[in-house]
Amino acid sequence: MTPLNPSPERHDLLAASTAETTPLAVASVASRAKPGKSRWPARLDLLQSLSGLLLALFLMAHMAFVSSILISHDAFYTVARFFEGAYFLGKPYPILVSGVVAGVLALFVGHAWLALRKFPAGFRQYRAFVAHKNRLRHGDTSMWWLQVWTGFALFFMATIHLYQMLMNPSLIGPYESADRVWTGNLWPLYLLLLFAAELHASIGLYRLALKWGWFDASDPNRSRRRLRWVKHGLSAFFITLGLVTLGAYIDLGRAHAEHAGERYVPASQSAPAASGRH
């Protein structure tokens, strides 16, 4: 604290130190005139968060649509045709699904590229983090490690799924999807993909909220506890729903295995129309 009435001796000392430091302070305030630091780190940080948020929201919506098989075959059939534009363009256009998948794929690749910046680079960083995590036994630190590994797994697993949907958009329907899951032997991939995607997304949403200070209560620890419960709830809900849904497709796929490749025709459509679809 600066004394109000410093002694003459003290005054000289302070004046001398002020004379020394003032040009430095002025120089710093004026430093904006120089070409400044790149704004890209800020943009990349924003883009990583935004792409992650969009992918997590897509994942939730995706699960809602896919799980409509639990209501009825017709419900899922309706959802699938809806995204092909059948109810507002007159007939289904599977290319619309490919368009959406291409958008998701671009978002996914972009997010992966941005998130790679945070991965441990090289053995030294890898070893330093693992030693730190094991020593610290700290929930959020361990959760990030889980997110790194689920993210790494998604590089491969999600890419397979997205490529398949991109190329075969018309093969989405109760029988078509069930055949892919069972006869096409994709259920092991979907099982692993379910856990990797849901855990990665729920941890990601939790960390997004903390990173940007969303839903802050007056006590940050209380809001964090709530967010953690929401995160656990999201993981449990979507993994359970995913498992039940996958089980339904496996069941249907097994029952339909002998007729694999046959397209689903909803009960409401007449026989001639159905035969026209084969």
Binding site: K37, S38, R39, P41, A42, L44, D45, R117, K118, L136, H138, D140, T141, W144, R207, L210, K211, P220, R224
Partner: peptide, 16 residues
């Protein structure tokens, strides 16, 4: 304003 600064923080919150 870079990855050695605030954008490097991964919100692991060991600090907090």
């Amino acid at each position: 304003g870079d990855d050695d600064g605030v954008f490097g923080c991964m919100s692991l919150l060991g600090c907090h």
